[in-house]
Amino acid sequence: MTSASIGALEPVAEIKFGQVGLANLKLKRLDPEGLAAELREKVASAEKLFLRTPVVLDLSHLSALPDVETVRDLFERIRASGMLPVGLSYGTSENEALSQALGVPVFAKFRAAYERDSEAAPVSRETPRPPSRAPAAAPTPVERATPPPPSASAPTSGLLHDQPVRSGQQVYARGRDLILNALVGNGAEVIADGSIHVYGALRGRALAGAQGDERARIYCQEFHAELVSIAGHYRVFEDIPADLRGKPVQVWLDGDKLLLKKM
């Protein structure tokens, strides 16, 4: 089997996302037709998550940077799938020139699992906002196993939030854990650079390890999550085994595998 045929067996692109639902589309090889087909499939399979999702195109893993017209064509294919391309990822001089030619920004500090912002100050915010949608890599079977003990270096102080998080709201604990004493509703989003503890029902989206901390975890008393993510790796509700739904669950990351287990 040639290297070209081996490459054709792999996904064209891998999607990860930052702490505000902005999708990072990492192109693994230049295959516009294959990319368009993959994105159409993602949107068709979960329209509520993927339709009109803002996308940052990451070209850093290609062997050579494409020319302006090629990238313009990629943008059109992304847009035709139902997603919305909003810029390029990473701030190299070549990317900067490309972004200027395309009239789009460069997101040099995109917060994904493979890029950490070590200078982030431990502050927090709570901001109502329209619900965001966060796409990700092609789904793989969810695995359940015995979790390792939490890391001693994980954040020890947390942001305490006592009120329900309603649809369209976001609560973000920057540089720390997030502790929620009420439910997280459908269409709501809770985010933490550390772990997330939900002492109630989790029905919206929970994104832990938002700056790439793979040791972060998610704990909840009643699991109905639309999406759970740790350091950019995520699963949607449809991918979760039925015996975990409505149960106390913890979520953690083992390499590239997002694992879930009843508590």
Rank of each mutant, 00 (worst) to 15 (best):
A136F: 14
F237M: 12
Q169H: 15
C220F: 04
K262S: 09
Y114T: 15
A173K: 01
R144C: 08
L183Y: 10
I15L: 13
A145P: 06
G246P: 04
R29G: 02
N181P: 06
V43Q: 00
L207A: 14
K26Q: 12
L88Q: 04
D67I: 00
L227A: 02
V123D: 07
K109R: 13
P241M: 09
L25W: 04
W252Y: 02
V56K: 08
V86A: 03
C220V: 09
A225R: 00
N186D: 14
A231L: 07
L22I: 14
A4C: 09
G168A: 05
A216S: 12
F50A: 09
K28I: 11
L57H: 06
S229H: 09
G185A: 14
Y114Q: 15
L259N: 07
A36V: 01
A210H: 00
G204L: 08
E76K: 12
S45I: 08
E33Q: 09
S229I: 08
D239C: 01
R144I: 07
P11L: 03
A242Y: 06
A13P: 07
T70C: 01
S45K: 10
L84Q: 12
T53V: 05
R29Y: 03
T2V: 06
P148C: 02
S151V: 05
P32Q: 06
A225P: 01
E189M: 11
D193T: 05
R174K: 12
L227K: 02
V104A: 06
S195A: 03
